[in-house]
């Protein structure tokens, strides 16, 4: 059997009933906060966004980027493991022949629909080439059209950075 605790309000005290003292008390709190905000910035609980941005934890999963090889070409080999792993089905890759002796395949087009993406990071986990990362630390930006949220290879590479991981593995 559960016990129900009943608490009763005892009604308002005389000071509360008079109304004015309570208003004054509130004004004191407000004024104290105002003075603190104007003369001492340090303790402000809110942030001056967008001038001041929050530092995200290192492993924050932000917008995607594609990494480059040393020669500046895209590291992605269009193996489609990311698009296979993606639970939201939002990665669309068209593969092509690079005409290179060793690494023949590359993505002719690489698109991620950020409106569909759930930022799970599965694509990064799946990639065998360290070609896709979510370490830009940036959010998807608002835009006026849905199409702008489909980011393409060019944008993904603009944000990109060289990867030093060895492609092809040891003993090549």
């Amino acid at each position: 059997m559960a016990t129900i605790q009943v608490k009763r309000r005892d009604g308002l005290s005389l000071a509360e009933k008079l109304y004015i003292p309570e208003v004054m008390r509130g004004m004191v709190v407000t004024t104290r906060q105002l003075v603190k905000n104007v003369f001492g910035h340090q303790d402000i609980a809110t942030r001056q966004y967008p001038e001041v941005k929050k530092a995200y934890p290192e492993r924050f999963r932000g917008r995607h980027r594609l990494t480059w090889r040393d020669d500046g070409s895209v590291r992605c080999v269009a193996c489609m493991l990311c698009s296979t792993a993606c639970p939201a089905n939002c990665i669309h890759i068209v593969a092509g022949d690079r005409g290179d002796e060793k690494i023949e395949k590359y993505p002719v087009s690489f698109e991620i629909d950020l409106l569909v993406c759930v930022y799970c990071g599965m694509c990064v986990e799946a990639c065998p080439c360290d070609a896709i990362r979510m370490d830009t630390g940036t959010h998807p930006m608002p835009s006026f059209s849905r199409d702008k949220q489909r980011i393409r290879k060019v944008q993904l590479l603009e944000e990109g950075l060289p990867s030093t991981a060895r492609q092809g593995g040891l003993g090549t």
Binding site: A78, C79, L81, I103, E104, K105, P128, G168, G169, T172
Partner: peptide, 11 residues
């Protein structure tokens, strides 16, 4: 064996 499964059509 090159083990280039990511770019190998047979994978």
């Amino acid at each position: 064996h090159p083990v280039d499964c990511p770019i190998c059509d047979q994978a």
